[in-house]
Measured scan of single mutants.
Amino acid sequence: NQASVVANQLIPINTALALVMMRSEVVTPVGIPAEDIPRLVSMQVNRAVPLGTTLMPDMVKGYA
């Protein structure tokens, strides 16, 4: 199964993503693939992302 990017902490709106904020986990539904974690670093989220939430492409500015 494909691992997705999951929030490792609460990520406030407009926060630039850092490695420590993300982990990979096999979840349903599938979100952003875990292999894209390096690409996500320094991109901003466009909403608050609670701990344990799967990151979806529409949550990250400039990802989709």
Rank of each mutant, 00 (worst) to 15 (best):
N1Q: 15
N1V: 15
N1W: 11
N1G: 14
N1L: 15
Q2N: 12
Q2M: 12
Q2C: 12
A3S: 10
A3R: 07
A3E: 14
A3P: 09
A3K: 09
A3H: 11
S4H: 01
S4N: 01
S4A: 03
V5T: 09
V5C: 09
V5K: 00
V5L: 03
V5F: 01
V5Q: 01
V5A: 09
V5Y: 00
V6S: 00
A7Q: 02
A7Y: 02
A7W: 00
A7D: 00
A7C: 04
A7P: 00
N8C: 05
N8E: 10
N8M: 09
Q9W: 09
Q9I: 13
Q9A: 12
Q9S: 12
Q9T: 13
L10G: 11
L10P: 14
L10V: 12
L10T: 08
I11N: 02
I11A: 02
I11M: 03
I11H: 01
P12M: 13
P12F: 05
P12H: 11
P12K: 08
P12C: 05
P12D: 09
P12Q: 13
P12L: 08
I13L: 08
I13Q: 14
I13E: 13
I13G: 08
N14E: 09
N14F: 13
N14G: 10
N14D: 12
N14H: 14
T15S: 08
T15P: 02
T15G: 05
A16Q: 12
A16G: 07
A16K: 10
L17K: 00
L17D: 03
L17S: 00
L17V: 00
L17F: 00
L17G: 03
A18D: 12
A18C: 15
A18E: 14
A18Q: 15
A18F: 06
A18Y: 05
L19G: 06
L19F: 11
V20M: 14
V20T: 15
M21C: 03
M21N: 07
M22I: 11
M22V: 07
M22N: 01
M22H: 00
M22W: 00
R23F: 05
R23V: 08
R23Y: 06
S24L: 06
S24I: 09
S24T: 12
S24V: 11
S24A: 14
E25T: 08
E25L: 07
E25Y: 05
E25C: 06
E25M: 08
V26Q: 10
V26C: 06
V26E: 15
V26I: 13
V27P: 01
V27W: 03
V27I: 06
V27T: 13
V27C: 05
V27D: 03
V27M: 06
T28K: 06
T28D: 15
T28N: 10
T28G: 05
T28C: 12
T28I: 08
P29S: 03
P29D: 05
P29V: 07
P29G: 03
P29E: 07
V30I: 15
V30D: 12
V30L: 15
V30P: 15
V30A: 12
V30N: 14
G31S: 02
G31C: 03
G31W: 03
G31E: 01
G31Y: 03
I32M: 02
I32Y: 01
P33V: 09
P33L: 09
A34R: 05
A34T: 07
A34P: 07
A34N: 05
A34V: 09
A34L: 03
E35I: 07
E35F: 10
E35A: 09
E35C: 07
E35T: 09
D36H: 13
D36Q: 11
D36W: 07
D36P: 00
D36A: 08
D36N: 13
D36K: 08
I37T: 07
I37R: 07
I37P: 00
I37H: 01
I37M: 15
P38R: 07
P38N: 11
P38E: 10
P38M: 09
R39A: 08
R39H: 08
L40G: 00
L40C: 03
L40I: 08
L40A: 00
L40F: 01
V41E: 05
V41K: 05
V41T: 05
V41G: 03
V41S: 03
V41F: 04
S42F: 09
S42R: 08
S42T: 13
S42A: 11
S42Y: 11
S42V: 03
M43P: 01
M43Q: 10
M43A: 08
M43H: 12
Q44V: 10
Q44K: 13
Q44R: 11
Q44W: 09
V45P: 02
V45L: 10
V45Q: 01
N46F: 06
N46W: 05
N46D: 10
N46L: 08
N46M: 10
R47A: 11
R47D: 06
R47F: 06
R47T: 13
R47C: 08
R47S: 11
A48R: 11
A48M: 08
A48F: 10
A48C: 06
A48E: 11
A48N: 14
V49K: 00
V49I: 15
V49Y: 01
V49E: 02
P50S: 10
P50I: 06
P50C: 12
L51E: 15
L51W: 13
L51R: 15
G52P: 02
G52Q: 03
G52F: 04
G52A: 11
T53H: 15
T53L: 14
T53R: 12
T53K: 08
T53C: 07
T54W: 00
T54P: 06
T54M: 03
T54C: 05
T54R: 03
T54I: 11
T54K: 04
T54D: 02
L55V: 11
L55F: 09
L55A: 02
L55K: 01
L55T: 01
L55Y: 00
L55Q: 00
L55I: 14
M56G: 04
P57Y: 10
P57C: 08
P57R: 09
P57M: 06
P57T: 05
P57W: 07
P57E: 08
P57A: 12
D58M: 10
D58Y: 13
D58E: 13
M59R: 01
M59C: 05
M59T: 05
M59P: 02
M59V: 07
M59K: 00
K61T: 13
K61F: 11
K61Q: 11
K61M: 12
K61H: 14
K61D: 11
K61W: 12
G62V: 04
G62E: 10
G62N: 11
G62M: 08
G62H: 10
G62W: 07
G62P: 04
G62I: 04
G62K: 05
Y63P: 03
Y63F: 07
Y63C: 05
Y63T: 03
Y63L: 06
A64L: 13
A64D: 09
A64Y: 06
A64C: 08
A64T: 11
A64W: 05
A64S: 13
A64K: 14
A64V: 14
